[in-house]
């Protein structure tokens, strides 16, 4: 065994961390997300010692399935874009008569189709394997689904804009960005069980209202309409901001002449 060879290879991987700070962020990012999510879940469980709590544990399955809807919608946008980067097809698309909103619109549709597949598969498995029927949310499932998808699209545009700005070094953002929001949007625990300082932050994101609404429907069979309106209104704001950011960064990339470099790398 040649230790020089091993040290040279170790050096090669360490160089990567110094050249692309995004990798350092990743080192810290995922453990912190896990810690915050499971820390809040633990607090939630500790506070609920009554015997009925067992039946509410299905919240976790519902939360997980609805979270995946958001995640797949975001992936539909970001991964579709990355597919064009990985296959060196981006330039072909940008020199074809394709308007920016047409390109983004196509990725939205891909996101929607991905959601359908995921929702059906997860719904079936959770029903057969864990006696949890996602359709117990009844017709509320449709506005839940729509609002989560809209926020997923916004995150997809933000991820794509950041990848456009920082190039392939920022590719991991395509997977990381939704999880940046996960601890804050109360997927697995109610907002009231989150630390007080983080609650106003939670209410500033549209999915929080959906996850709270899901728990309310599962608990009481009724839904607070205000949750849906707040979520929809916030989604409009986030979509507009994300669309604006994407268009601005795309234009900036053109101005700096980075688009072709990025598209052919």
């Amino acid at each position: 065994m040649n230790f020089n060879t091993i040290s040279a290879l170790v050096l090669r991987y360490l160089f990567l961390y110094t050249r692309t700070p995004m990798r350092m962020v990743e080192l810290v990012f995922w453990p912190v997300v896990d810690l915050v999510v499971w820390g809040n879940v633990t607090v939630f469980i500790q506070k609920n010692t009554n015997p009925e709590f067992g039946s509410f544990v299905l919240f976790f399955l519902g939360g997980m399935i609805l979270w995946d809807i958001l995640f797949r919608a975001q992936q539909g946008v970001a991964i579709s874009f990355l597919e064009d980067v990985w296959t060196r097809n981006l330039l072909n698309v940008f020199v074809a008569p394709v308007r920016t909103f047409e390109y983004v619109g196509a990725t939205f549709i891909v996101g929607f189709l991905r959601i359908l597949v995921t929702a059906v598969v997860l719904g079936l498995i959770s029903w057969v394997g864990y006696s949890y029927n996602i359709f117990s949310l009844h017709w509320w499932l449709i506005p839940f689904f729509a609002n989560l998808m809209l926020f997923g699209w916004s995150l997809g545009m933000i991820s794509t804009a950041l990848i456009l700005r920082w190039g392939q070094a920022a590719e991991s953002l395509a997977w990381a960005i939704p999880f940046f929001f996960q601890p804050a949007v109360a997927v697995f625990y109610p907002v009231e069980d989150m630390p007080a300082w983080s609650q106003p932050i939670a209410w500033s994101f549209p999915p929080t209202y959906i996850f709270e609404g899901m728990r309310e429907v599962m608990k009481t069979g009724t839904m607070n309409w205000n949750y849906l309106w707040y979520s929809a209104a916030l989604n409009v704001v986030y979509l507009a901001l994300a669309g604006g950011l994407f268009a601005w960064i795309l234009n900036l990339t053109r101005k700096r002449g980075l688009l072709t470099k990025f598209a052919t790398q």
């Binding site: 296959t87 097809n89 330039l91 072909n92 074809a96």
Partner: peptide
């Protein structure tokens, strides 16, 4: 761009699709 086109040795059509599929996509775009 509707009246123009471009080809470069440094770009590619998506390598994971069939040739026919790639060309159909662009035929529809145009």
């Amino acid at each position: 761009l509707q009246r123009s086109n471009f080809s470069s040795a440094y770009t590619a059509l998506p390598g994971n699709l069939l040739v026919r599929q790639n060309l159909i996509v662009f035929a529809r775009i145009y």
